[in-house]
Amino acid sequence: MKTIGLALLATVAAAPLFAEDGHREMGAHVHGVSKLEMAVEGSTVEMNLESPGMDIVGFEYEPSTDADLAAVENAIAQLMRADELFAFNDAAGCAPVEAMAELHIHDGDEHDHGEDHADHEEEHHDEHGDEEHEHEEGARHTEFEAHYVFECEDTSALTTVEFPFFNHFENAHEIEAQYVTDAGAGSAEIDHDVAKLTLK
């Protein structure tokens, strides 16, 4: 199963003020802090990465100029090259088999309802349906989301993950990682200086 696909997609959620069911809710968004979820089972390692647009491309507005779009395109291409971002210790023998990265543009509301309005950039598509939507001005931010699957020869030998990630994205300062392995769940903070996750 080697499916490496590229998806550049932007979802614009309705501002909470106009949410139809009166349900208002915001998520946390901290510049400089990415979130990583990592699960290990059998020979598979799965990772989900969520990075603020600020960390990856240095801006958080909807990309409109050619330069912005190129930056986003480049960033997504870089996020797709999993082996340049994460380095497992050699003994585990892990190699990426799947990578997906996308850009989400949130218009103040991070909550994904079924009735969310979606708008599409460029020629790309997503599963939210095609609806025209007028953008309200407001607290807007963007988030890159990436999903990776690695296959390893021996996950029991997997002890550390290094993050050359920080070399590619200079605005990224910290990754808050949560992981689940045979030994249980845990969390760790990985930063620019100590770009390494040690699994217990």
């Binding site: 699960a39 290990v40 089972e41 799965e46 909550h111 994904d112 949560q178 689940v180 392995t181």
Partner: peptide
């Protein structure tokens, strides 16, 4: 069932509307 589903289920529950 599978450890790989923990984070997905967690997100589903946390976003349960």
């Amino acid at each position: 069932k599978s450890r790989l589903q923990i984070f997905g289920l967690q997100r589903w529950i946390n976003e349960y509307s």
